[in-house]
Each structure stands twice: as C-alpha cells, then as structure tokens.
Design a protein around this nucleic acid. Structure first.
Length: 301
RNA sequence: GCCGCGGUAGCUCAGUGGUAGAGCGCUUCUCUGAAAAAGAAGAGGUCGUCAGUUCAAUUCUGACCCGCGGCA
C-alpha cells in the first residue's frame, strides 16, 4: 500500500473549539449549506443517556442534518480512542460514499488527532489483570522498567504518569517489542476550522449554559444513570458534570459547592482544551459563520 | 466594658527566636487504547499595626486595631 496522492484523498472538515464555543451549531450550519453530515468527536457524547451533562445537540438543533457517533455506547462499557478511530473512519467512508461532506466536530482533541493524524494504535487491548498488577508498583519502578525495555519511549513519556507508563509496558510485554513510533502521512485532505472565543466571554457562556442545563434536568440525568446501575466510581471517572453531581447526590458536597466547583472545573477544562491546538498551524481561527463559509467554499473547489 | 480565642499566599489553615510551608485556587504545559481521564512545572506572603526585649523577632512582651464567642 503506497502513500496516497493528495488528490485522491477524501476531503474532511474539522470543526473544533473549547466547550460552549458553539461548535455544534457551526457544524450544522456548514452541513446545511454544503451538503455535509456531522461526525461527533466527543468522548462523553458517545455514550447513551448522557445527554444534558455532556452537552449533546438535541434533535431540533440538528435540523435534520445526520449526526454520527452520538449515543453509540452503553455507559457501562469501556470505550477508547482506538474504538473511536475505527467508528469514525467507517463513518467518514459512509458519508463520502453518499457524495456528502464529512464534518468532524467535537471537543475531544485526542479523538480528532487519532483520526486525522492517523495515529496507529498497536493492537494490544487493555489487560486489566496486568494493569492491576503494575498499578501496585511506584511510578519510579515503572519508569525504570520502561527505560530498560524501551529507552526510546522512555525518552518522551511523562515519567510520572502512571496510566501512560502502564500502557507503554503493556504494549511491550504483550508484543515483546518496543512501542511503535507514530508518524504517517495524514489520511485525509482536511480543513481545520477553530472557533475563537474571547476568554471572558467564554466564561460567561459556560456559566449561563451550566445553569440552563441544571434547569433542564441535568441532576436527574445523573440520578437516573446511577439508578440504571452506573457506579459512583464510574460517574466520578466521567468527570465534570457527572463527577460533581454524583458527589452532590452522595451528600459529599452541598449544592452550592458542587455548582461552584463544577464551574471552576469546566473553566479549567476549556483551558486545557486550548493547549492541544495552540501551536497548530493548520487551524483557521474564525470569529463568525461568514468566515467559516468562505473557508469551506475555497476548500471544496 | 470585661474575659477568652484568633488575625501567616486569593481562600482554609500548619509552623518556627535566625525574614516561612501545605491543600485548594491562579498561570503555563504534556498527551501512542481511561483523554471531561491522567500527569508535570511555575508565580503569589515586608507572617494585623506600632513599640520593647534580643546580635537577631513572623515567633517572646506590651499597647492598639479588626473578627468571632461568652459574660455583663
């Protein structure tokens, strides 16, 4: 399999931006104008029954534009980037086959990168027994072990991050080989549109949206998830809305504290989201729909 | 008015006769199958005010100011 010439590659649009920036609306607008369909790139909206808390678009907001990769996984099941990559690739093909324009839109940068930068994930599925065993070791021990077995990977890895160290060792122990390097030609011809929102304005939008979602029944949504058998631990792991509402429902924090902490955490999250794209030259940062429309026009010519 | 307790980082508080720490927040960053996860680095303080003791005071003493509780 040779490298595809760029003229042969499928065209894919990426819409990205921090939480509450208006990505979903923009993706729908572009879809309507340019005959596109949307593929969500969101690690929480992928789950069923996690609607308000994850900020999923409603049926009305979709305005009849087909959306992919929303509500496809049971929240009890584990889902990973690698699963996402497979599903997203399938969706892109499907949309292109219909002669429509695939638009990847979402706030999970790792998911977008996995698909668009063709990150190759070694075919080693998580071995929870092994992980539990490695979990008992200290980060220092794990790092030394990695240094011995794969000095190359040890050079770049976050030496104090247990989750990453364990994953790296898992790959090495299972494949008996070092962790493969990632570097490949991007698989699609792409246009990256980033929504640029002023920090202060974003904070206001985050807060307003948070209160609106509480009114819309976000707390009940989490309560129902628990009732359906999702553990507190799992809800904790989902983070943000699910984490803080779960703590509130358990009586660990009062309402005011839950709301304040959640607001703080969402703001932090939006800052973390920015670090993924800050230095990325491919992204065209836009302020409004008009600018986006122009970009897409040039892109699809 | 009296008695007691307290006043140290943006917040909650540790601590020491040789000019200070933690957690949280804040800023910045990382990202190879949990990614809203997980992790890293950094910036903040003339230790309430004034005076005394001392080679040396945030630490001891006194007065004062402020807050909280109790008594009257």
């Amino acid at each position: 399999m040779g490298i595809k010439r760029s003229e042969d590659k499928l065209k894919v649009i990426v819409v990205l931006g921090p939480t509450s920036s208006g990505k979903s609306d923009l993706a729908v607008e572009i879809s309507k104008k340019f005959n596109g369909e949307v593929i969500s790139a969101d690690s929480r909206q992928i789950y069923k029954k996690m609607d308000i808390g994850s900020g999923k678009v409603t049926k009305e907001e979709m305005q009849k534009v087909p959306h992919y990769l929303l509500d496809v996984v049971d929240p009890k099941k584990r889902f990973s980037v690698s699963d996402y990559k497979k599903l997203a690739e399938k969706a892109i093909k499907e949309i292109a086959k219909k002669g429509k324009l695939p638009i990847v839109c979402g706030g999970t940068a790792f998911y977008i990168k996995a698909v668009m930068d063709s990150v190759v994930f070694p075919k080693v599925s998580p071995d929870w027994t092994l992980r539990r065993r490695l979990e008992k070791k200290t980060t220092e021990e794990l790092y030394h072990e990695l240094e011995k077995k794969d000095p190359q990977r040890a050079k770049n890895i976050d030496s104090k991050n247990k989750v990453r160290l364990i994953r790296a060792l898992e790959i090495i122990l299972k494949t008996k080989k070092p962790v493969p390097k990632i570097k490949e030609e991007p698989p699609y011809k792409s246009l990256y549109i980033g929504i640029d929102v002023d920090q202060e304005e974003l904070k206001e939008r985050i807060e307003k949206r948070l209160d609106r979602r509480i009114e819309e029944g976000m707390i009940k949504e989490v309560y129902d998830l628990k009732k359906d058998g999702i553990s507190w631990e799992r809800l904790e792991e989902f983070g943000l809305e699910y984490r803080w509402i779960a703590r509130y429902l358990q009586g660990k924090v009062d309402y005011e504290e839950a709301r304040e902490s959640l607001f703080t955490d969402i703001k932090k999250f939006s800052k973390r989201q920015r670090t993924w794209w800050r230095e990325d030259e491919r992204i065209h940062w836009i302020k409004n729909y008009k600018e986006a429309e122009e970009l897409v026009n040039n892109f699809i010519k």
